[in-house]
Amino acid sequence: MQKEITLKRFAGIVDAYGASPRRWPDDERASAEALVAASAEARALLAEAAALDGVLARAPVEAPSAALAERLLAARPRGVAAVPSPKPQAGFIRSLIEAVWPYGSPAVPAGALAASIVLGVTLGSISDISVLTQETAVTASVESGTEDSLVALALAEPAWPEEWMQ
């Protein structure tokens, strides 16, 4: 939708953006061009702005040096590090072992299972198992919640390009 513009507004446009229609605001460009076609005053304003544009176009410009391009290519990323595969979900028995033996490495599942059985026998109560099962479930639930929130955070995180400023 094009805005109708007055000569005063046209003067404001060329005063700010210069004589080239491609720099004019999109929603006023067509009206401004129509005014130029219809008004000698608008054409005078345009010529005035074009004279300044002509001088500004003489600002020096140099191509980037070859050394800059070389430095940048030398510093380019060299490929991503291998992404570790996600840790497989612990099975029910393994969860039990981890719950029973939280500070040790269950590197030998059979040994771990034996240890948990010995511990279970020693404690002599099935209720302990059910408590542990419940704790495991809570732990899993918390971990799952944390992962979900991290994913949500990553997706919602709006400011990553701002890091480029730092």
Partner: peptide
């Protein structure tokens, strides 16, 4: 310009 592109390299992923 170098600083800008180094940031591109660093944050591209």
């Amino acid at each position: 310009a170098q600083e800008v592109f180094l940031r591109v390299w660093t944050h591209a992923e």
